[in-house]
Design a protein around this nucleic acid. Structure first.
Lengths: 160, 160
DNA sequence: AAGAAATATTGTGGGACCATATGAAATGGC
DNA sequence: GCCATTTCATATGGTCCCACAATATTTCTT
């Protein structure tokens, strides 16, 4: 029972520290974690509708509208009309948006490598297995199974 | 490299799902994760000053003031003047605050047990080791080493 | 064509965080 | 005793997220 207690504490600590440290490093590069999450998702999937973004990020529609507003204000993203559905808008990266991703990429890579470098590949595999098991458990327990985009390391398999 | 990518995704997913699911269950009992965190800390440590709470929870002073404001509004907590330091206030639980902790306890226990139940004790130990290793790494990388209070399972060693 | 559903957005209200700054009180050196 | 510094709680303003409700437009269903 005390092990579970410890586990919960360590899990929370880990997330908190990781989130803050990563955020700090990205802010030093002029980005923010949340913004980056959005930009990387669009880079990976190409033009997206608001709905798709909400689902991919596991966020409420309201949140996405706000985020896109902000990114558009910063010139990182544009909303184009969707030719095949006049209700919809297609959100895409601007050149400036792509530049932010490019500039930040090495720092993301460095973070991930430095972070997971303490684990040998066997432990990484074990860790991954456990995380997947726990994730499945949460879904069994009632959590939604929607995904979340990856912000930390580069993804080389875009799916249009 | 792709394993690290997967790891990051799974870690984020896990935290998000756990946080939301736990929060939902607690809200059904009239509490919230953050509130609970505060109440449990005070229960464990007795009367506390705002500063102590901020340090214990790894939060900014501003956050604590807000949280205590809310808890005080809900009648779960009171601010008493500190006789030995007229700047300070001593924050303590009300009877209602203690009642919330009592009511929520079984649900916290149930969640933790159900969640970690998918892992045998060997995997739990392995998981704990890995988490600690990663936490230490983050501290090496510049993250603060302040702790965070445990919200999920009961703690039986209060330290006044 | 009428109704239902989907799409994006807006408003309102709220929760949980942050850095920074302010005023009051305590503390420590002199 | 006196002044600079530190400490304490709080305030200002900001980010990121949510739920709920309402709107206008368009598409899909029947």
């Amino acid at each position: 029972m005390s092990v579970q207690h410890e586990l919960m504490e360590q899990m929370r600590d880990l997330h908190l520290r990781m989130h803050r440290l990563f955020n700090d490093r990205m802010r030093a590069q002029g980005a923010s974690l949340a913004q980056l999450k959005l930009l990387l998702l669009i880079e990976r999937c190409g033009e997206m509708r608001s709905t798709d973004i909400a689902e991919a990020l596991g966020q409420a529609p309201r949140t996405v509208t706000e985020a896109v507003d902000a990114a558009e204000r910063d010139g990182l993203v544009v909303r184009n009309p969707d030719p095949s559905d006049r209700r919809a808008k297609r959100i895409n990266l601007t050149e400036e948006g792509r530049a932010v991703i490019r500039d930040v990429a090495p720092h993301r890579e460095a973070f991930t490598a430095q972070f997971f470098g303490v684990l040998d590949s066997e432990d990484q595999e074990k860790f991954l297995t456990i995380l997947q098991t726990l994730n499945d458990r949460l879904v069994e327990m009632g959590a939604p199974s929607t995904l979340e985009a990856n912000v930390y390391s580069k993804n080389s398999d875009p799916q249009a």
